[in-house]
Design a protein around this nucleic acid. Structure first.
Lengths: 157, 157
DNA sequence: ACTCTTGTATCAATGTATGGTACATGATTG
DNA sequence: CAATCATGTACCATACATTGATACAAGAGT
């Protein structure tokens, strides 16, 4: 079963967005994410709804952070993605008339829930600026080097 | 994404096996699990290899616990299933040359690993007898009622 | 007007887990 | 020893969700 990479993907592009002033287009960001623009838009839709980013159309349009990284927690991003399923294991049937199965499932579900709460609590404590590589706290470079720098010359000229 | 229910399924049948003396056939157990015998055998194969259950062929064959529930931890069962993937989320690429992506993924992976360790630690503390419904600590009934009781008359006669 | 970019609908491709069948092998019974 | 029963396992079919991809209407800027 392939893992859902949206959280990781979104964090990646958010950090890149934080490194430049101008809006970045879906096409550029999609390359960072190694997917296509439509998928990126689909994925970012929740973040826009949640008010963490804003998007503009037409010339000079694209994506920008709507608030500083310090004010966005990992939990907020996770929730903006509509709380993707965390665990890959679970129970077959939620309703069974076998008391053995019910007990097993209840115990398991309870354990998973505790683990989930713990994880989300941790997510809530992490703000996105903490995810930035220390050597890049201010300046931008690489990964986007090719793609992100692409427009800088144009803007700079 | 559909969840892997093997752990829950296996625990369910293990507890049923603990409630009777005689071996239970794949066909009977598969009904408890609401699947077919081949899937059950496939799933139980790891538990046999790990020595938690034993299986016999031919007349009077079937599955039996190889040791008491008290000596089997949730963790042991999980490991016998070959440590199924726990989390449904992850990173797209393990190797990237973008330092932003690397940092994000490393942080995320570290957080997940901590959560995983915590969960497995908990699993290690739970023995299967603790999963048995308290009212059934000794006697068997229901769920299997139809299917599990099926052979008792034959044996009793 | 023209170009750019998003927003979204729709469909195809992909991958994976599960279901299901088949059959060889080993055990038991009479 | 033949018949039967049950496992062990290989193999293919099915189902399903996620992702990829295309298309296009509509908004924004020049």
């Amino acid at each position: 079963m392939n893992k859902d990479t949206r959280l990781s993907d979104v964090l990646h592009v958010l950090l890149h967005m934080a490194q430049v002033e101008e809006p970045l287009t879906s096409e550029v960001l999609a390359k960072s994410m190694r997917t296509n623009p439509a998928v990126l838009r689909r994925t970012m839709a929740g973040l826009r709804r949640a008010g963490h980013v804003k998007s503009g159309r037409g010339h000079g349009g694209g994506w920008q952070l709507a608030r500083p990284l310090e004010e966005i927690t990992l939990l907020a991003v996770y929730e903006a993605l509509d709380r993707p399923t965390l665990f890959a294991i679970g129970s077959r049937s939620r309703h069974s008339d076998c008391s053995v199965e019910k007990t097993v499932n209840a115990t398991l579900a309870d354990t998973m829930l505790r683990a989930e709460n713990l994880l989300l609590e941790r997510f809530g404590q992490v703000t996105l600026d903490q995810l930035m590589p220390s050597q890049l706290k201010a300046m931008s470079e690489e990964c986007g080097s090719a793609t992100l720098a692409e427009r800088s010359p144009k803007e700079a000229s």
